[in-house]
Structure formats: C-alpha cells, structure tokens
Design a protein around this nucleic acid. Sequence first.
RNA 1: GCCCCCUUCGUCUAGCGGCCCAGGACGUGGCCCUCUCAAGGCCAAAACAGGGGUUCGAGUCCCCUAGGGGGCACCA
Length: 487
Amino acid sequence: MPVRVRFAPSPTGFLHIGGARTALFNWLFARKHNGAFILRIEDTDQSRYVAEAEDDFKDGLRWLGMQWDEGPEVGGPHGPYRQSERTELYQKWVNWLIENDSAYRCNMTGDELAALREQQKKLGLKPGYDRRNRDKKLGPDIGPHVVRFKMPLDGQTVVHDEIRGDIVFENADLPDLVLLKSDGLPTYHLANVVDDHAMQISHILRADEWIPTAPLHAQLYRAFGWEMPKIAHLPVILSPTGKGKLSKRDQAFQEGGKQVLVQVREFRRAGYLPEAVVNFLTNVGWASGDDSEVFSPQAAMARFELKDINPAGSKLPYDKLEWLNGVYIREKLSETELADRLVPVLEEAGLTVDRTVLEKVVPLITERMKTLNDAIEKVAFLFGDTVTVNPEDLIQKKMDEESTVKALEAALQALSALETFDHETQEAAMRDLVDELGIKTGQLFGTLRVAVTGQRVSPPLFETMEIIGQETVLERIQAAIAMLQPA
RNA sequence: GCCCCCUUCGUCUAGCGGCCCAGGACGUGGCCCUCUCAAGGCCAAAACAGGGGUUCGAGUCCCCUAGGGGGCACCA
C-alpha cells in the first residue's frame, strides 16, 4: 500500500510554527517512502473562517520547501481538496450511517445543551449530552437538527498509536459526538474520516490534542466498515512561558525580554532562512540519532521513523535557531546566494542597494550575522551619502580630543598619500603610524572606525575602507576632525 | 471533576537491561586568537522527578505518587 499522508489545516488563522512542524513530519514521511503529500483545507467552520489563511498556508509551505503533490492549485485524483466543496459526500455518508442505525438525528438546540451542562455541573454529574434522542429514530422533518454518532455504550476501544503503542479507552466514557451540524456542514470528526478514506490516506500524522477523539474516529471507521489508516499523534509545541501549548498564541509576543515568534510568516520576516527553519524544526521531537545538528531534509528522510518521534511536548529552542541560522548563512550559502537574499531585505529596510558594493561587503559580514535582518545595520553606512558620528565615540580609551585630532590628522595625511588603496597597504601604513604616534592599534583603528562608519562596531576596518573608497574615507576623516575642533 | 498523554543538563536531545559515576548541541562561564564585533579553537559547570518492585544488574521493564500537558463544543 503506497504511503499517502496529508496536512489538513483549518483556515482560521495564519500558518503556525507548530502546524509547520506537523506538515514537515508528514512531508518527510511521504518523501522517505516515495509517497504522496496531500494538502487539504478543512474549512467546515464558517464562523471562524479567515479568507487569507489558505494563501498563508500555501506560501508558508512553499517557502519552507514542502510542495504538496495533491491539493489546492495542483489538483489531484481525489479532489476537490477543500472540504466546503465536498459537502454532498458527507451528506451521503451521514445518511448511510443513519440508515444503518449507526447515527441518529437530534433536534436539541445549542442553548438547551448548554443549560443541560450547567445543570449537570451543579449536581456534580459529568457534563455532556444525555443521549435523549439516541433511540427515537427521528426523521429529517424535525426542523433544525444535528446528526450524532451512536457510540457503543460498553466495551473498550483500542487505538494503536505508532509512537505510543496501544491506547485503551472505555466506551462508556465516550460521547455521541456530532457528525453533521445544523448548518448542514460536517464536523471535523466526520469530514476527516470520510476524506481520509476517500483520499486513501495511509497514515495520519496529526497533533497530540486529537488523542481523546481518536477512539471516536476508530469507531466511525468500524461503523463504515473501512480500514483505519495507521495513526501517530505528534507531540505539541509548548509555550516558553511554561504554561500550555504554543498554539494558544496567535502572534509573536515577548517573554523574558525575548521575542517569541509563532507564525511562519514571522520567522520569515525576522530574517530566518527557510532551510534553517526546516532543519531546526526537524530536530524538535525527533533527532537524527547520530548527534548531528546540521543536516538537509534529505539526510533526515533517510533516517526518519515514526517510532523515533519523542512523544513528549517540547518548547522551541529559539536560541538554537539563531545559531543554526548563522551556520546556514556562513556555511551553507554561497556569497552570491546570500547577496540575492539580502537585496529584498535591505530594500525593504529603505536602503538603495548597489549590487556591486553589496557583493564586496558580503564576505565581511557573513560571519557576523545571525539573521538576514542583521545585515541592515551592518551595511547601512555603505549605502548612504553621509554617516552620523557621535563625537564622543571618536575618543578612544585613554585618549582625549587633542590626541584624537592629532591621530586623525596624521592618518588623513598618511592615507591620502597612498597610491593604492587596498586594505593591505592601508594597514601597513596605519600600523607604522601607530608606532610613530606611540599609541595602541585599538586606539587609532577605533577612532578611524567611528570616523568612517559612524559605528563603534563594524566589519574589519581596512577592508571596509577599501570598499568605501579613498575619496569618501578622506572626507569622512576630515569631517570627524572638524567635529572635534568647532570653529 | 472525569478521561487520556507525557517526564534525561536551563533548553532541544542521545540512550531501546550491563558499553552510562549518562553522550551531543544551543545557551552560560573561563581561556586563546584579535583593529571593534563576530567567527573559530580549547576548557568548565550543568540532568536520569520521587518512591516501590522485577532482575545477578535499571535512565532503560512494571506499579504508585507528584508534576506538566491535552481533551471533555453544532471548533478544528
């Protein structure tokens, strides 16, 4: 039986990092087995529907490099792939269940149900639907109604989870869940079972929070007489606050002075590389088993086994993502590729990028970046006409205005005298000057750095000056001297 | 309240009865390199939740307790 898995998000919000991890494990599993990775949009909740969500899912998956084999846009033999377009199918199967005495209609309203629950709580009873219409065989002419599943009242249901092993449930604890809502749309429970069967899904890899309803789904498969796909429940991603799962949060937030990103688009905007995010996510809840930390999806696929997934929930190690992203920037991307990715980021930040200059500076900043966004402040002084210098920054440790001006003037003279302005020549000249002036290299280089870049921290000074060019360098040094000697 | 899942360094994890007085990575601290910042190199501190079993032997198997998480919707 071919492997066919699906990622089936509900379009109620943007692609969440936890959802991306679920998608990733599905994708890895499908690719490992030369199977199909299917995208299905579970849009059966009209009240929570968000129109932009589907595009965000697709953008996110594509950005991360997980192309789906069947689904919206690409089509496939089992479409349509939006549940809202498959309603007749659910209707058909629900009727089949009613005819086979496995489901029944119930016209109790939501308000009545809520009141019942309230009352039960007061009396200390288990809250829940009391199955009052279970055996009445109500017809379709009872006005607004739902269709509920007839759960067995005794016995046990065993769900074999590929990660955890057998999980046993007492049927008596399980409710008669709603299959078809009064608006005629199916609930997740019905739609998911009908579609997984219709789409010939072989393995269900879904989030942990579905474990409690798994026996319900198992009973549905049994009622239909269908073979249930193999199933594995993926551990949840926990919030770094230590309280609950991350998915409760919809957007980035601050925790302990750090930014906690939640949506995939937020990771993208923050300057993370999709390759790094994928690598990072692969290592949460699963590990390569050989202590390697940096690896391609292909390498992960080779070893990926459901049984090796860690069933425990985990927090995202954001610090590790920063480090990994740095690794990808400096070791996995060529200078040209990095420049390509930097251009839109810098332009977005309002800089007018000169590609030639950018390519020269890229080698100087790669090992100083954790995210693409880090490049913005590192190269800004290259793409403006002037730099803003704080005079106090010009004066280095154990120096004063007078000695600083003296040093800058000497440097100005020496640098202007250079025939060639490459960094080796500059450095040789400046080191000679350090000896002449009797100061430390850090003192001279430091004040020059501030004068030329406006920053106390910059890429290596002489390589930077080489890029800026002799003329501009001299101008900036003169400007710095002028700052320290008000007219 | 009821049901279910989970539990190794701060964090992500390796470990599938003896190879573990527990390995790797991030982070943290120290040292080295050094024109700043990085990167890099070296070193260090840091964990089997607790208690019972089973066994010649338990981080690894079983039970209990505790803690964490999830679910108990006409949401997925």
